[in-house]
Design a protein around this nucleic acid. Structure first.
Lengths: 146, 146
DNA sequence: CTAATGTCTCTAGCAACTATAGCTTCAAGA
DNA sequence: TCTTGAAGCTATAGTTGCTAGAGACATTAG
């Protein structure tokens, strides 16, 4: 049996985060010691590692909740898990695309700012005037994930 | 003079967001009509466009506050704005790198999910067992920017 | 036995919005 | 002119995924 601190160390998750996961019901309530401290089994460690990996891959806790409920009854089709992973992949690809456009813009800004006065500095200008922008950040207006 | 709705439509920013920006002091308090409704000038539209573009480029509101204060008194060196842009560029490049690694991982997961039973599903398996991971998301444990 | 560290609960805070409720104002049609 | 519906107002609370702090109790090393 592991204390919460050991569990966190082994899974690479901070202690308050573990308690938070329990609070929102993504980890089951832990057993307690005589002194009311949480005790965790190997199974709990695995579940936490699962969560940690999924978070690292950018899955939301909601998606993880779904994945966990799938893995809890493993006798059905894999399709739902596949769907969730695919959606995640699409999201990641979209983010990469947006960030790449963004990078080009920032590079342009930095190059053009040769250290003159701000009045001549395109950094400000580019951000203020859309017509000077290389990218088109008007229509999509996707909620900012950041 | 524009109402808040028109302003939002023209800048591509939702109405509550504009009020939020005013509340946190990144937009000045708007003039009011006789009936207490906000009225905006062309200048306000430009400022909001500036903010919108900067947000699209991944700047935090704090960085934007700095940029705005620079553009509000444009008689100084461009160096500060340049510094801010360069910091953002580094951040963006790092995000792209992380997302690209992540994408590879997700693609691997999706490809390997052949639609069988969950018990055999690599999506679940990969998330549960770190040894199946190609990437190393153990040490860095960088706070997730997403 | 004591001191240091770990753990407990509870509450509040973070960014950057978004949503809701209940009200007032405005613009356009009949 | 009246009316109806959209748009605006304020204020408050909720969102996501944690993180930080306070003050009290538990455990462990020396």
């Amino acid at each position: 049996m592991l204390t919460i601190g050991k569990l966190g160390a082994q899974a690479g998750v901070k202690v308050p985060t573990i308690r938070y996961y329990e609070q929102i019901g993504i980890l089951p309530e832990a057993e307690r010691s005589a002194g009311n401290q949480r005790l965790y089994s190997r199974k709990a460690l695995e579940r936490l590692a699962f969560i940690r990996h999924a978070r690292d891959l950018g899955f939301t806790l909601e998606a993880i909740r779904d994945l966990l409920s799938l893995s809890d009854n493993p006798d059905q089709s894999c399709a739902a898990a596949d769907t969730i992973a695919k959606a995640q992949l699409a999201e990641v690809e979209s983010r990469i695309a947006r960030l790449t456009a963004l990078k080009a813009e920032l590079e342009r800004m930095v190059v053009q700012c040769a250290g003159g006065r701000i009045a001549d500095c395109r950094v400000i200008e580019v951000l203020g005037d859309h017509s000077l922008c290389a990218t088109d950040h008007r229509h999509p207006h996707s909620a900012h994930p950041d």
